[in-house]
Design a protein around this nucleic acid. Structure first.
Lengths: 165, 165
DNA sequence: CCGAGGCGCTTGCAACAGCTAGCACCCGCG
DNA sequence: CGCGGGTGCTAGCTGTTGCAAGCGCCTCGG
């Protein structure tokens, strides 16, 4: 719906904006929750494009893989369109990533860990032996610590906790 | 931090003290909640309605809690409309169930599609430097290949995806 | 007896998701 | 130079989402 948080992020600049009139107090709080949620997912398109170029796949190719049209995928990547969950799922399949990852990026799934889900992904990966899993986790932790030490001002990117209203 | 159950209960009980204790089917409905029927073909609407009546919340009340209109929720529950992920998420919040559960019911989240998002997670992880990212990906690929070689019964997964060459 | 107010549902409408067709730009090849 | 083919983006359309009004039903309370 017309969440106020969307234009707060300002990236989209759609031609029209609309002021919501909320009746009930309960509805207000809920709407606030929702706006926060959708604000988190401002950059799904960026994430998709990132993943796509990282995988060296052309826009048209991914569109075909995901079963969507190329123009639409283009618009999705640039944030002009807000893809439905189905489309998101299809895109995730095309990118060979889990739908959950995309949903988290889209802000419609709360992150279950403070950690980026790399750890969860490694833990859940059935293609790894226990030993290898352990090695990867260990290595990952080391890298993260190193990175954090290098940039102590870095904050966790999830839950920006912005309060527009 | 997340809205606890007392919120909904409070709302419900304050508005509706006169909610008569119906004949003891309550325990059964609660049990139904726990069972969480795993039929994938189940309509989301049915599931939502199930959960709603189990929580003894009226359609309008849930609509208010979820921040959607009551007619729309009605149509969703009867399967006439296919709610978007945002709405689904909002409804899940209103029902105090996890969004994942609803997504599964909606068929837009495959039951734990395991491995593929490890690569994406590593690629997307903001806590890694590019070099470390490359190392992890390389190592992961190696491990996966090794694992696959050890178990030839496994049908070839989509390992050759990224090919950082 | 009848208005107030709860319930769920049906009806029309605004907005948007997503597609098909076509554009502009860049390459390699004859 | 011209042409086929690659990239991504713009324009116009259709179907659906999601909402505001309004209906019929039932229960209170005056």
């Amino acid at each position: 719906m017309h969440t106020p948080g969307e234009f707060v992020r300002g990236q989209v600049t759609t031609v029209r904006e609309k002021v919501d009139q909320l009746a009930g107090t309960v509805a207000e709080t809920v709407a606030a929750e929702r706006s926060k949620v959708s604000a988190t997912g401002t950059q799904v398109g960026d994430f998709i494009r990132e993943q796509r170029s990282a995988a060296r796949v052309s826009l048209r190719e991914l569109a075909r893989l995901a079963g969507v049209s190329n123009p639409y995928l283009s618009q999705v990547e640039r944030g002009l369109r807000k893809p439905s969950a189905e489309i998101l799922s299809a895109i995730a399949k095309g990118l060979e990533i889990s739908a959950e990852t995309l949903y988290e990026q889209a802000g419609i799934l709360d992150r279950r860990d403070g950690h980026p889900d790399t750890v969860a992904a490694i833990r859940a990966d059935p293609l790894l032996s226990e030993r290898h899993r352990a090695v990867l986790l260990e290595l990952y932790e080391t890298y993260v610590r190193e990175h954090a030490a290098r940039r102590p001002t870095d904050q966790t990117p999830s839950t920006p906790t912005e309060g527009p209203a």
